[in-house]
Each structure stands twice: as structure tokens, then as C-alpha cells.
Simulated assay, not measured.
Amino acid sequence: MRDNFFLKKRMNTLYFCLFMLVVTFISIIVTDYDVIKGFTSIPKAVEWAVSNFYPNEKAWNRLPAIAGSLTETLLVSIASTVVAAIFALVFAIAGSHATGVGGFISWLSRSIATLFRNIDVAAWSMILLMSFGQNVLTGYFALFFGSFGFLTRAFMESIDEVSSSSVEALRATGASYLSIIIHSVLPSSIPQLLSWILFMIETNIRQATLIGILTGTGIGFLFSLYYKSLNYNSASMVVMVIVCTIIIIESVSNYVRKVIL
């Protein structure tokens, strides 16, 4: 019986791998992708990057302007994430299986979270550009909507995972709904919620670069400006600053997670 189970599992894995190979082969044919040319062009791309994509003296002189745009991007990313987390917590409590009020409200909370989560941040940027134009507010709302959908779903799962038993115990004692939220749900789930918020801040800083290109703001706009004007040295400086910032923030975030979890 056990041998049949493992044999069936291996066969399913084999069928899946064959299916992926067939899909890949069909995709190559449909898109006219030249596999050999794609791999042989890698050395030339590396050679071009080494020859052109590096910061020179003029690029270093632009560092203060790049730092200013980076600060704007960081503040927008953090602000949109924190505000989205507040709204997400309310919707997560309303839609959670452990704390939800049930019925239409729980269904509505989950439906809204699913809708916002399945629309990409870049798509939100394009949608909001029609209403707000190219400005910081467009980037802020794009990050806010994307963060809200993701965090609502993550918060719901965290609350369901850590709060179910304690919520049932307090309900058995006749505690009020507000008391259950304050004395059980929030204390037990706050470490996980903070971890998700930190993860979302990291993600939004990366996303903000792409959004800046679309909305004409922040560090993304500077990169687009330098790159389109063929100023590859300054564009490489922007990339270096973004990478260093993300590494620092990720290190701080990992340290905070170790402390709170």
C-alpha cells in the first residue's frame, strides 16, 4: 500500500514535469524565442554593463539629489503601508473565522480583500493615473490599495491561526466582543502582524521604484530620466543606492522580526 502511494506520487511528479516542458516548448514556438541566441547574448550584455553601467564622478555629484528622491520614496512606502495596515486590521477582524461577526459583513470583508489583492500595484498605478495624474498621491494610493489587499488576507490568516482557542475560551466565559479583541486577539497576534507589516514595507520600497517610473515621482522617476537620456552612469548610481537601501532595510527588518517573534 505504501509502495503504491509513493509510486503514484512519483508518477504525478513526472506528469507535472512533462506538462511544464510541453508548455515551455509551446511558449518558445509561439513567442519565436531563440534560446541559443538568448544565452549567447549574455556575455555581450555583461560586457556592455561593465563598460557603461557604472557611476563616474558626475554621477557621485548627483548623489544628494538621488538621496532626496529616495527619501521621498521611503516615506511614501512607509506611510502607505502603515495606513493600509490599520484599515486591513479592521477588515481582517471583521472577516476572520475566529473573530468575524459572520454573515454578509464577513463575506464582504473577504471579497474586498480578494479584489484588492488580485489587482497588481502597477495596474493600480495605471488606473489611478487617469484620476490623479502624475504625482506623489497616485503612487501613495497605488501602494495603499495593494498593501491593503495583501495585509488583510495575511492578517486574517494570522488571527485565525493564533487566536481561535483563546477566543473560544473567552466566549465561553461570556466576555464581550470588544473584550475578546482587546485582551485576546491583539496581544496574541501582534508579533505576526508586525512581521507582515515589515515585510510589506520592504516590498513596497521595491514596488515604489516601478511606480515612480509610471507616475513620474521619487527615485523611479530619476532612474527613468537618466536612463532615457542615455546617462547610464547616473542611472547605475540610482540602482546602487536602491540596492544598498533595500539591503539595509531588510537587515533591520530581519533583526526586528527576531526580537518580536
Rank of each mutant, 00 (worst) to 15 (best):
T114G: 11
I211Y: 09
I213L: 11
I119T: 09
F155P: 03
F53L: 09
E157S: 15
T73D: 04
R257N: 08
E161L: 13
P43N: 08
G149L: 03
V259W: 13
L108H: 00
A172S: 13
S111V: 07
S109D: 07
T99Y: 04
N254I: 11
F150W: 08
A85M: 12
N56W: 02
A235C: 02
N56P: 05
A172P: 03
K8R: 08
A88L: 04
V167K: 06
I246F: 02
R171Y: 05
S189K: 10
Y226H: 10
K44G: 14
R62I: 05
F199T: 09
L7M: 13
K228N: 14
S69N: 14
Q207F: 05
L137T: 13
L14W: 14
I36S: 13
A85E: 01
I26V: 12
I249A: 05
L193I: 12
F116H: 03
I66C: 08
I249W: 03
R62C: 05
A113K: 00
S176T: 15
S234Y: 04
A123E: 11
H97T: 12
L222V: 01
S27G: 11
F199G: 04
A98N: 00
A169V: 05
I29W: 11
V239W: 02
T73V: 01
A172V: 06
Q134A: 11
F145G: 06
F199N: 08
E168L: 02
F150G: 03
S179I: 00
S164Q: 09
W124R: 06
T40N: 11
A84V: 04
Y255G: 11
F144H: 07
A142V: 00
W124G: 02
T203N: 10
F155C: 08
L129G: 06
V23F: 13
S163I: 01
E250G: 10
S195G: 14
V185F: 07
I66P: 04
I260T: 06
A113S: 13
I78Q: 02
N254E: 15
F141D: 08
